[in-house]
Amino acid sequence: MNAIPDLTQAKTVNASPVIALDGITRSFGLVQALRGVSFSLVPGRALALVGESGCGKTTCARIIARMDQPTSGDMLFRGANVTATGSAAQERAYRRAVQMVFQDPFASLNPVFSIAHHLVRPLKLHGHVKGRSGAADGVDALLESVGLDPILTAHKFPHELSGGQRQRVNIARALAVQPEVLIADEPTSMLDVSIRLGILELLSRIKRERNLALLYITHDIAMAAHVAEEIVVMFAGQMVEWGDTNAVITDPRHPYTKLLLSAVPDPYQPFVPGESARFLAHAEEIRRLSRPASDGVEKVGPNHFVRQPGDAG
């Protein structure tokens, strides 16, 4: 059930990337939130950005979703450089292609509008449906595609739905635009553990069915392994280890990746009293070693890269 996605199938696709980041940096005053981030999003594949809060994951998402501009570096969309803001028509085309699902399902739907309204608007704005009956059919199809019953759900208001159902509506809303790229920023972290798998499976399915490029952002590496073919581990604005999910999970090379993996709750390893100081010191030491900027990148597998720790002195 928790198998790592099958890579053999995806590899044969070998499509060209929809979006490519090349050496993206972003500074907020003295804080360097991103220090040279490069990766690409490919149709039908999911890439997971993993790291602690404040490591730059969300800044990345905001730049790709065009809610923020990089300080330097290039962003390519279907091979064309889109780093600088283009014409209104170009921007509209970009935004139609790139949609986002936010973390908080309770804050991202308007409480005074029905679910149908949330879905009809993007359908009409982007000219995907015509007329009243067309809109109703579109809403029904969207709700069904995310596993919700249209008859029970369409007329309801956000407060009448559970968190998991609301997140499904958010996904449907993003799909209404018919995007090529879906950015999901911690889409399950506010949901119960038992509901998370359902949402992950839904994301995997729509990725497959609609040949979407999926950027999945999370602090939980177990979750990332579950959904993505590729993983990028970030720390303090740098990519510290990246590559095929299988390689990164089963053969982690960077100390921070190892720390992340060791912190995934394991019911068969109870905490031993007296160990906390050791773990705290260990985690702090790894953070200290991982923080400095470093240009040294080592290729350790066909698609598996590790950044050499910089000079922490």
Partner: peptide, 8 residues
């Protein structure tokens, strides 16, 4: 229901 690592 909990996504876990293959090793676990």
């Amino acid at each position: 229901a909990i996504p876990s690592l293959p090793s676990i």
